[in-house]
Design a protein around this nucleic acid. Structure first.
Lengths: 106, 106
DNA sequence: AAAAGTGGTAACTAAAAAGTAACTAATGGC
DNA sequence: GCCATTAGTTACTTTTTAGTTACCACTTTT
């Protein structure tokens, strides 16, 4: 996903620059209220490869939506949490999951 | 975008099956409260080719989010409107645009 | 008489995204 | 001594997505 490559005046486009990635909303939704390890997130979305998952996580970390904490252990342990900016997306994520529950899943 | 190819229990995934496409939210947002011609939509999102725009519109029509009305004139005229299901997405679209306005655009 | 205007579609090419397999480091358990 | 464990990374291949160009129909305008 191209990113910030041109100034946007459209608030919808602006939001999509952050959460438009294929798996980002699912990851953010899964992180809501908790800290998760990389392996937990990967297990939650088995359909996506670890390479792509890593990419999406990196982009969201770069964008300030999530925080990555690496513990210097072996085997490695890495935890992901929402930042304040990430938490501020909760109305969006809630509206999305509500809509799916009410209009798709019966 | 693969579609309905497996049952989803996750409401977020369910929603993304409908609006996860690259331009769908922008199109739906642009259709909110009005009817638009194909050319208007294309002019609004000049960065996307007409081929891709047509694809996204077709998918959303198939999914029942928008309605396509073709007038038998020459030159052709085609209008797009939100269906009831499409209108029901307004809390999602509003939450998204609000977030962009408040957290990205200053 | 020719050109413009609209909403596409089809065929082909280019670019972007994603998948896959192999590899790493240090510790604990067998 | 050897294997499993975790969170990746790298290089390479395949798949998916998107762009490009040409074309159509019929009426109105130039």
């Amino acid at each position: 996903m191209a990113h910030f490559n041109e100034e946007v005046a459209c608030p919808m486009t602006a939001t999509l620059e952050y959460i438009g990635g294929r798996w980002k909303c699912i990851i953010l939704y899964y992180l809501t209220g908790t800290t998760r390890r990389f392996g937990e997130i990967a297990a939650r979305i088995p359909v996506v490869s670890r390479k792509v998952l890593t990419q999406q996580l990196k982009e969201m970390e770069r964008d300030g939506l999530i925080q990555r904490t690496e513990y210097k252990e072996v085997p490695p342990r890495v935890e992901y949490t929402l930042t304040e900016l990430g938490k501020s997306l909760s109305p969006v994520l809630k509206a999305m999951s509500n809509w799916g529950r009410e209009h798709v899943l019966k």
